[in-house]
Design a protein around this nucleic acid. Structure first.
Lengths: 206, 206
DNA sequence: CGGTAAAGAGAACCATCGTTCTCTCTTGTG
DNA sequence: CACAAGAGAGAACGATGGTTCTCTTTACCG
């Protein structure tokens, strides 16, 4: 899941990119509080002064790290979003399954970061919230376009499964998590037809 | 979710219990790497020497912290496990919903801890794995007793929903997370009847 | 060609990290 | 009553946390 963005939107720079790449790898692998700036600086072949020339504080690096992960997920999403109807939902599900279980998989970078930042007002938590909104809205749009009568319900259900799936992929068996997630998504897609029959009619709240 | 166990299985002690209580509150609220032993010692009105007389190292305190959370969840589980059939599944679901959204809720203590300990062999990760196995087995037994044809599938699905639900309860809206989780569990219970009709027959792998 | 900005090198800051130590005082049990 | 164990108080350890500093060298841009 962690991938440094290929093109930084702000000023690009050799040193900055190396710092971001090292931070991405280390933060994801060992947690944010568990990795000091010295480690990142050393891994980047950069000096402490150079680091602080590019990032006012460690927290700014954390934000940039999560932003870069987000950017790479947005890039990967373009392909899936081109699909139509239920196929799009399937492709988004495949994205999630693709994240799980590769060498060094440690769960969702955003969820892991969130557990280390307790202040909901913190800039770090805001990037996380933005990313989650982005993902939820994308899934909701997919269900709406596929004709689901309660796209909000379905999207929240989908996101809940995906959060559980990346967790299980980290802590339990990756392949089992993928299978369970797939079954859940398939059921959710089937519910596009079944839902009106199974639940009593009620307008969904946003 | 974090609650110090009422009766420590090992040697009980005023100081030890205060340390564990303070650790439980601080570790859960701010993360484990984010809280130093000095903070815990100060909050417990205990000296550093006393702390190290009871816990060989900080890691042992972390393990004791998670153990105590596990113990209190086990205690709470006894009531639900007394129920029969589908009602038991509903009660376990209610337990999960009860965890979510109270003042200071910060998600699952075990999931948060797991994100800070990357070594799967670490004693901390082992308590986490034990707890997850305990919960999964309990759910699986509930589905089996309720007559589900693939209790393993259903249990993994249930656990995935619960992991996603506590996450959403922390990062998104608690009440929405509860509703979404409830809908998911209800669907899972309904699938005890529907499943044989919807999916092709195949023996579930453990 | 000259100037400005970025990067390297390295020391230093103080606070906090987890851990160990000594020394005194209380307390309960034999 | 005596003696051992538990707890309080407080200093200290070296290592590392994030951050700032000075000084020199490189390299691009007008």
């Amino acid at each position: 899941m962690p991938t440094a963005s290929d093109k930084a939107p702000a000023k690009r720079s050799e040193a900055r990119e190396r710092l971001l790449a090292a931070a991405t790898q280390l933060f994801y692998a060992e947690g944010i509080n568990g990795v000091g700036v010295d480690r990142i600086v050393a891994a980047s072949n950069v000096t402490l002064a150079t680091f602080y020339r590019h990032f006012p504080s460690k927290q700014d690096l954390v934000v940039a790290y999560l932003q870069s992960v987000h950017d790479s997920l947005v890039a990967r999403a373009a392909d899936s979003d081109a699909a139509e109807g239920r196929e799009r939902i399937g492709k988004i599900g495949a994205e999630v399954m693709g994240e799980i279980g590769y060498e060094g998989f440690r769960g969702c970078a955003f969820l892991n970061a969130a557990s280390e930042f307790e202040d909901p007002e913190s800039p770090v938590r805001e990037v996380i919230a933005d990313h989650r909104r982005w993902f939820h809205d994308r899934v909701r749009r997919a269900f709406a376009d596929a004709g689901h009568e309660r796209p909000g319900h379905a999207a929240r259900h989908f996101v809940m499964l995906r959060d559980g799936a990346v967790t299980a992929g980290y802590l339990d068996s990756p392949t089992t998590a993928q299978r369970t997630f797939k079954r859940g998504v398939d059921g959710l897609v089937r519910s596009i037809d079944l839902d009106p029959l199974l639940e009593e009619r009620a307008p969904e709240e946003p």
